[in-house]
């Protein structure tokens, strides 16, 4: 499309052919990768044929949800929220200094900047379930491992967004605070903090909302929350109880998402 704009009329034809060939090649590569992947997975076609039937059958066994069971999942659900809230608060506390050293305009030197980048990358590329596995080994099963799993996964996310926000602040305003004789701490609390405050609030509730979802699965590795209950019910083939849990998760997640969206709209 843009090829016509930035090449001379004489070269237009050739360039377009080249482009087309490139595109065609790319499509071929993608197709080839897909076919190869499909064959590598060695999926039995019987599965696919019977899958819709099986899924329908499963839903049949799930319905109606076990309403009596609802009372039993209140506690695990509260645990899930506990994990999300404390995990997010902990992550915020840990991410703030990481953001400070990750932002190019506030980091003391190159080594600290590199350290910040490594922490961000490390935290982000390890899924909370893997963090959960590790923390269950260290702290044993339960809520604590879940909290730490969610927190360690969130540090990179929060620190990255926050440091981008710090990099965008008005440097002249912080310079002016230095010029009045303010200390570096004054610069931080009077110059930097007011500028990133809305972003800070927005990022926190956004991550909290994501963490509610994450905390529904930490239980699969024994790190507390509704996931433990869910895994037990599935293991015991109590499908009607499973549906009750799924509905409960849906309600809690949608509710936290609405709260998060409301707060983010308000703090602009």
């Amino acid at each position: 499309m843009t090829a016509a704009d930035d090449t001379a009329p004489g070269e237009w034809e050739r360039f377009d052919t080249k482009r087309r060939l490139l595109r065609f090649g790319l499509v071929l590569v993608v197709l080839g990768a897909t076919v190869a992947s499909w064959r590598a997975l060695d999926v039995r076609y019987v599965y696919i044929e019977t899958a819709p039937e099986n899924i329908a059958d499963l839903f049949g066994r799930m319905y109606p949800p076990d309403a009596a069971y609802a009372g039993e999942i209140v506690d695990p659900m509260i645990q899930t929220i506990n994990i999300a809230v404390i995990g997010t608060v902990l992550a915020l506390l840990l991410a703030a200094p990481v953001a400070y050293i990750s932002a190019r305009n506030t980091t003391p030197n190159r080594a600290t900047h590199a350290l910040g980048t490594v922490i961000v990358a490390g935290s982000r590329s390890i899924h909370s379930l893997i963090w959960g596995l590790v923390f269950v080994i260290v702290f044993g099963t339960g809520v604590l491992a879940g909290i730490l799993a969610v927190a360690f996964r969130s540090i990179g996310f929060i620190a990255k967004l926050l440091s981008e926000e710090i990099e965008e602040i008005d440097a002249a305003a912080t310079e002016a605070i230095r010029a009045t004789g303010g200390s570096e701490l004054d610069v931080l609390i009077y110059g930097i903090l007011p500028q990133i405050k809305p972003a800070l609030a927005g990022i926190s509730v956004y991550r909290w909302d994501i963490n509610v979802r994450e905390a529904t699965i930490t239980g699969f590795v024994g790190a507390g929350g509704i996931g433990v209950e869910l895994q037990n019910s599935i293991g015991a083939f109590r499908w009607d109880a499973v549906l009750t849990i799924l509905i409960a998760i849906l309600i809690v997640v949608v509710a936290s998402e609405s709260i998060s969206a409301y707060v983010r709209r308000k703090v602009r």
């Binding site: 008005d170 002249a172 305003a173 310079e175 002016a176 605070i177 230095r178 010029a179 009045t180 004789g181 303010g182 004054d186 009077y190 110059g191 007011p194 500028q195 405050k197 809305p198």
Partner: peptide, 28 residues
């Protein structure tokens, strides 16, 4: 520096703070 006032070309105020807070920042 407390005894040297400075007025900048792009104002260099903390935009998200009130006028009063910016004026008071002279006492930081």
């Amino acid at each position: 520096r407390r005894e040297i006032g400075m007025v900048f070309q792009e104002y260099a105020l903390v935009e998200r703070l009130t006028a009063m807070e910016n004026v008071l920042s002279g006492r930081l």
